[in-house]
Nucleic acid binder design. Sequence first.
DNA 1: AAGCCTTTGTGAACGCACGCACAAAGTCGG
DNA 2: CCGACTTTGTGCGTGCGTTCACAAAGGCTT
Lengths: 216, 216
Amino acid sequence: MARLPVYLRALHGLAEHGTATVSSEELAAAAGVNSAKLRKDLSHLGSYGTRGVGYEVEYLVYQISRELGLTQDWSVAIIGLGNLGRALAGYGGFASRGFRMAALLDAEPGIVGELIAGLTVEHIDKLETVIKDNGISIAVLAVPATAAQAVCDRVVASGVTSILNFAPVVLSVPDGVEVRKVDLSIELQILAFHEQRKAGGPSGVEQEYLEAVEGQ
Amino acid sequence: MARLPVYLRALHGLAEHGTATVSSEELAAAAGVNSAKLRKDLSHLGSYGTRGVGYEVEYLVYQISRELGLTQDWSVAIIGLGNLGRALAGYGGFASRGFRMAALLDAEPGIVGELIAGLTVEHIDKLETVIKDNGISIAVLAVPATAAQAVCDRVVASGVTSILNFAPVVLSVPDGVEVRKVDLSIELQILAFHEQRKAGGPSGVEQEYLEAVEGQ
DNA sequence: AAGCCTTTGTGAACGCACGCACAAAGTCGG
DNA sequence: CCGACTTTGTGCGTGCGTTCACAAAGGCTT
């Protein structure tokens, strides 16, 4: 189900290319998955395909968007406007998918007041007010690890129920609050693992381990 | 196995806290996983725990680091120094885990020559030379989607065998080259999905779908 | 209008990963 | 030195996701 956004992106690419209809085989290749898996995923949304032909791109885009809740706009706050926060604020992929950057918050006096991506950075002291006034339900945390849990508690108390966390800590939240974590250094470490394996590779007990996790 | 970096981070946290020994239960809680799963993961590396006591933090850190190939230094190139590339270049979590930022590359004349995180941005024309001279085996792609595949082909041709891709495209690479993809907007879309579900939620066939993917 | 061909949707088997629960093992107190 | 307690390491059952393979269904050609 985390694959629906991937399909959606592939479909957007096809639409821009002028393709009107697509088979499960083609779409699966574009998304990098098995065609049977794709068909099963799509069939859970309802029968939106035509046998013998395939799926109508535009219609499928709408259906997936609706399923993902992208037909309505979501207000998002970015907290922490360091390098990463700025990158996220300027990332075009959000606005085009129904996400509205509604507020930027930071604690640093030198950053507060700055204009980033058309928004003025506000002081984190106003967090509660800003979140409630803008009807923000999704918060993006790009703050230092040490501040993450405290900020998390505050946004949750203010009514935020979805958090995208870039800080390298496991956040604890009450039931009903969704947290997704992105950790950039973990991805690199996984690459290093495979890299090491290619470069001669370990031996002994490690080899057994490698065999056990093969393909992961 | 993608969990080893998570354990490693939790262990680093414990080490800084002065903890010398840790039980699987405690470590599992810190990493946000089941304790049995953690023990099984660690047992694949070998028997590094002491029954009745737990695991020695420092020793376990070393063993996991070695398994992940972090005891040797990896040279990494960042290609594309937009907001995201800059954030990555300045991210401290890399250097502390055995990754050395060896080169920054961009095509934009206004960016080339700039000093970022202690490194001078070089022109992408020198890509092949830079990669070979620095023995770079891992490349981070923070370029626009339209340029991603072309840049990817060039780094692969230059000998890079691991790619961390931030561009929203599925890269095609020859066998033996590892690609990991990070897509920031996908994470937000998944949050929106859950958010929509909480806010009243869809009905009809969609409800069946939701039940089918419950907990995901 | 009828049959062929393509492609969807899904039933069923396979495989993997997760988690429980327990036995082995090692430590600490008496 | 022995017994009780703690914690690891793991065998086994369960449940989920993936994949194969095929039947149903619709379009297209003749």
